[in-house]
């Protein structure tokens, strides 16, 4: 395979990187404490685990509103519009092409930093999993106010099961997500991009017209 000329592009803004790593910290804390509360192991002590879990959860909930604000005011939401175009190509790349040194069918570009598979995944995480987890977590936390809020019909058991199910889904996402960071042109290229903001890409590729707007 002939090596193309490489160039650096500024892919992730300071805010995006801050937000990403903040979520990394929060998810780590919530996962460790949450699994302790679930009775998987004893580490910090149940009471401390509960206190930290609640604190981190509410913090995230509040910060999440800032993220929403950012996503909509900056127009970044367009980066998350799902598309089926080239979705199969990307999936095939990870299933076949990556083993044979083929180029990525939709490499990251400024203005289109997510490939179709990422768009779908991140939309699912940011628009479904996380809000659901925050909603169930918040209700879990406000348990004793249910009657006052007219939510007396809620079942703690059901809520706990949903909260736990989403937690498992997030855990699986994290496992795959961390692995996928190694699939750049070098093993650490994606992680470096999320730290510095700059990603090294092959020169000359342009953003496709279909990537700029939603179909």
């Amino acid at each position: 395979m002939a090596h193309k000329k490489m160039t650096n592009i500024y892919l992730f803004t300071r805010y995006e990187r801050l937000w990403h790593w903040l979520q990394f910290v929060l998810i780590t804390i919530l996962m460790i404490t949450g699994l302790e509360v679930h009775g998987v192991y004893q580490l910090l002590g149940f009471d401390k685990a509960v206190a930290i879990h609640n604190f981190a959860g509410i913090t995230w909930l509040i910060l999440f509103f800032f993220f929403m604000f950012w996503v909509f005011t900056t127009g970044e939401w367009k980066q998350y519009i799902p598309t089926t175009r080239k979705l199969i190509d990307v999936a095939l790349f990870y299933a076949w092409g990556i083993f044979h040194g083929e180029p990525h069918p939709v490499p990251a570009r400024k203005g289109a930093k997510h490939n179709p598979l990422q768009r779908l995944t991140y939309l699912g995480v940011a628009a479904a999993l996380l809000p659901l987890q925050m909603l169930t977590g918040f209700l879990y936390w406000s348990y004793n106010s249910w009657d006052a809020w007219g939510l007396g019909f809620l079942s703690l058991h059901l809520l706990a099961v949903v909260h736990m199910a989403v937690a498992f889904a997030i855990l699986i996402f994290v496992i795959v997500h961390v692995y996928m960071t190694t699939t750049g042109h070098t093993v650490t290229a994606h992680i470096k991009a999320m730290i510095t903001g700059w990603e090294e890409i092959e020169e000359g590729e342009l953003v496709q017209e279909w990537e700029k707007h939603s179909p």
């Binding site: 009775g39 099961v161 736990m164 498992f168 699986i172 496992i175 795959v176």
Partner: peptide, 23 residues
């Protein structure tokens, strides 16, 4: 009464840990 730490929904735990292991 559901008590965190004492209770779990076994099918979910099996599916969740199984899914993580498969991943």
């Amino acid at each position: 009464v559901y008590m965190p730490g004492r209770d779990r929904f076994m099918p979910l735990d099996i599916a969740g840990w199984g899914g993580a292991l498969l991943a």
